[in-house]
Amino acid sequence: MRKRWLKGERFVTLLLLLPSVIAVSVFVYGFIGWTGYVSMSNWNQLLPDYTFVGLRNFFKLFAHPRFQIDLKNLAVFTALFLTGALSIGFLLAVLLDRKIRAEGLFRTIYLYPMSLSFIVTGVVWRWLMNPGSPQMGSTGINLLLEKIGLGFLKSGWYTDPRVGIKAVAVAAVWQMSGYVMAMYLAGLRGIPETLREAARVDGASEWQVYRYVILPLLRPITLGAIIILGHISLKIYDLIVAMTGPGPGFSSDVPAYFMWETAFHANRFAQGAAIAVILLLMVSLLIVPYLIFSVRREAEV
């Protein structure tokens, strides 16, 4: 009797999960498999053609100059975006953790860009980084730099192929560094004051307290932030669309942008799917170990 009752409950719990499990199996795993299949097909025109061609699309992709530029841009963007957001975020958290008056107001100001869409950010920063012209004068940030006497910092921003994607990274850091600050601040508040006191009593300088006590304790947060920012960085698309597009000489092009254009503008679906597969592999390399590690560690506790 008792056993059957339990069985019935088990059945109900599975029933509750069923809609989501089916939806995610189909829309995530099924579709990924489908995309993988498309990437090895001959579907490079409007109408589907699932003739199997092996890895041909991938070979073509890696031989494509634009894709090589994209991978390099993505590496530059990720490096700048991560170091920028992590260091500014950490600095702001440390500064705000010093019993600041109006801390809430500062926090609100530093974090609000997170609530905006990358499209809004892109539209505004495109105007801010509009360099103006030597004949007519500077505009945007260049104009501001001139006004405050930092004219030597002027740049062509995204119109200069040597800057390109780095200009986009500035806007991305503007948008996401507050998020890192919020994570670190939550972490700092979790460290008991007694630990710092103990280190100070042992004669540690304020710098040493941060270097040898605080930073090691914040390591899980740093790791989490790297994972979150890293996967956002690999997927960056909206910001590029709204701010620069592929830019002069593809200087601000990235794989996610190339994929969309290839599949949905040029109707080269198999080629686009191949880019998508590479993107997915890059993100998985970053995410899967972290996911398994976090869920397992939590299960042990």
């Binding site: 995309t35 498309v38 997927k235 996610a256 949905f264 679906f269």
Partner: peptide
């Protein structure tokens, strides 16, 4: 990356 499910 949603690009990897967009075509299906």
């Amino acid at each position: 990356p949603y690009q990897s499910i967009l075509i299906p």
